[in-house]
């Protein structure tokens, strides 16, 4: 018996529909971070010269996955959420990430990372495997992985704390990233040094935040 053309068409369409079901045709959605309301016990607030700074290390995998859709720490990237408010009625402060330093327990100092290359290797590999098998579904799934990787990279830029002059009464917030050496970096016992410059006197204001890893037993 001859198969009707419509049935043949549906059979060909089925893998594509399945691909949609498994991968979703939409773009990766990454939520914005609400800030202080979600800060855990790990967040610390310190003050110097009426400059009030809160540092919240993103060391819990669940939070990192929710707001960054990957586990950067496992790949050697550590993330901090920073909030700063200038309660000084007279002076402004220049806040620049390049002046912050992360002092690791081993003693080496790191500056804030520039562009974080999360890579496109996984996506490209998936597309190539899909293509080599002649599978539309495989190529589609691979392209979706590639797309997700782009959204993860863009999200890092979106959420990054911008350098700025903090005027009296104003506040700022955002994330700062550090690329750590080694495959299993240790941040417990590290110190994040927040540095701002008084715009009038050009004197540096330094605040030191000791970092504790909540994943480790106390």
């Amino acid at each position: 018996m001859k198969t009707p053309p419509f049935t043949i068409f549906l059979r060909k369409l089925a893998p594509v529909a399945l691909a949609f079901l498994f991968t979703g045709c939409g773009t990766l959605k990454i939520p914005q971070y609400a800030g202080n309301q979600e800060a855990l016990a790990t967040a610390q607030t310190l003050q110097a010269e009426d400059l009030r700074v809160t540092v919240d290390p993103f060391l819990e995998k669940a939070r990192v996955r929710e707001y960054f859709k990957q586990a950067p720490l496992e790949g050697g990237v550590v993330i901090f959420h920073l909030q700063a408010r200038n309660d000084n009625p007279l002076h402004s402060f220049h806040v620049q990430k390049q002046n912050f330093r992360l002092v690791l327990p081993q003693g080496n100092e790191l500056g804030a990372a520039g562009r974080i290359d999360t890579g496109t290797a996984a996506g490209e590999a998936s597309v190539l495997v899909g293509a080599s098998l002649g599978s539309v579904v495989g190529m589609f799934a691979g392209a979706k992985v590639l797309s997700d990787e782009m959204f993860v990279r863009k999200n890092l830029v979106d959420k990054e704390m911008p350098d700025q002059t903090l005027s009296p009464g104003r506040s700022m917030e955002g994330f700062v990233y550090y690329e750590l050496p080694g495959k299993k970096p240790v941040v417990d016992g590290a110190t994040l040094i927040f540095v701002a410059e008084n715009a009038a006197t050009h004197q540096k204001v330094e605040i030191r935040f000791p970092i504790r890893d909540p994943n480790l037993p106390k």
Partner: peptide
Amino acid sequence: EQAMGVMAWSDRKFVLQVEWVARDRANKNT
């Protein structure tokens, strides 16, 4: 950075980060 979906009707996004620095006329102090 840019990010785009898989389909033609998916959103394509571009972000561009620019920093403005204003210094005094001697170009010494920010």
